[in-house]
């Protein structure tokens, strides 16, 4: 297979397969979770489930001061790479073109040099969290193979994308093809790993907030 055939495959059938698995997997898992339901609460409601739920989705964006003191590194670096990922994935012109083509929705891009800078910062932050996971005894105790796998499939698209943009190392078609392939790997693994938190964080926060809201307390 020549590099151009490789590129054609990842841009065509490869992306198709990955998209189908991604969409199918995410929706099946969300439906499973949503249909679990909860036991009817027989106690009298002291507040609104909805307002508590919605509020908590956003209020948990800001870390609690005690938590922050205890895990300053995890929170700060975690924020950096999540914002970086957001910028790189959703505000880079070629990525927006792809999203617009598939969904019909589009928005304007950030200037490429800013995205480029965000990519470098994100990669450094991702490297830092890996180092932290390996060094910290508590993290090491908690870490499973899946955590490293999830880290890898997040890091690979960043590195290959950076190399593809700067055209370093390999011929350009191979670089682009490897970048797209790495994203396809991410998309395929996404629904079946902890990466699902990108969707489920809304559900879990809502449930926490709703339970507290029903009781009339803040969560």
């Amino acid at each position: 297979m020549t590099e151009i055939e490789f590129l054609s495959w990842v841009r065509g059938p490869g992306f198709q397969i990955a998209s189908v698995i991604f969409v199918f997997g995410v929706i099946v898992r969300l439906f499973e979770i949503l249909m679990l339901g909860r036991k009817a609460n027989l106690a009298e409601a002291n507040g609104s489930e909805m307002s508590g739920g919605v509020r908590t989705i956003f209020s948990r964006m800001a870390p609690e001061s005690d938590t922050f003191k205890r895990s300053r590194f995890t929170i700060v670096v975690g924020y950096i790479f999540h914002i970086g990922l957001f910028i790189v994935i959703f505000l880079f012109a070629p990525h927006i073109l792809l999203i617009t083509e598939v969904t019909g929705v589009g928005w304007s891009a950030l200037p490429t040099p800013i995205v480029d800078m965000a990519a470098v910062i994100t990669m450094i932050a991702l490297a830092a969290v890996l180092l932290h996971r390996v060094k910290d005894p508590v993290m090491q105790y908690l870490a499973r193979m899946e955590d490293y796998l999830v880290w890898l499939v997040t890091f690979l698209p960043m590195v290959t994308g950076y190399l593809a943009f700067h055209r370093m190392g390999l011929p350009a078609p191979s670089l682009l093809a490897l970048h797209i392939l790495s994203i396809e790997l991410l998309m395929v693994l996404f629904p079946f790993t902890k990466l699902m938190h990108a969707f489920t964080f809304i559900l879990s926060r809502w449930y926490n907030g709703a339970i507290a809201g029903y009781k009339g307390v803040r969560s």
Binding site: S8, R11, V20, F24, F31, M35, P94, E101
Partner: peptide, 29 residues
């Protein structure tokens, strides 16, 4: 179409996959 755009009908397939997923997800639920 830009190089970053897939060459196949991804939107249509994703829609079918989504519809199938709702059915399967509901059944599993």
């Amino acid at each position: 179409k830009a190089l970053s755009i897939p060459t196949t009908e991804v939107a249509r397939d994703a829609l079918y996959a989504g519809a199938a997923a709702i059915a399967v997800g509901s059944a599993l639920g």
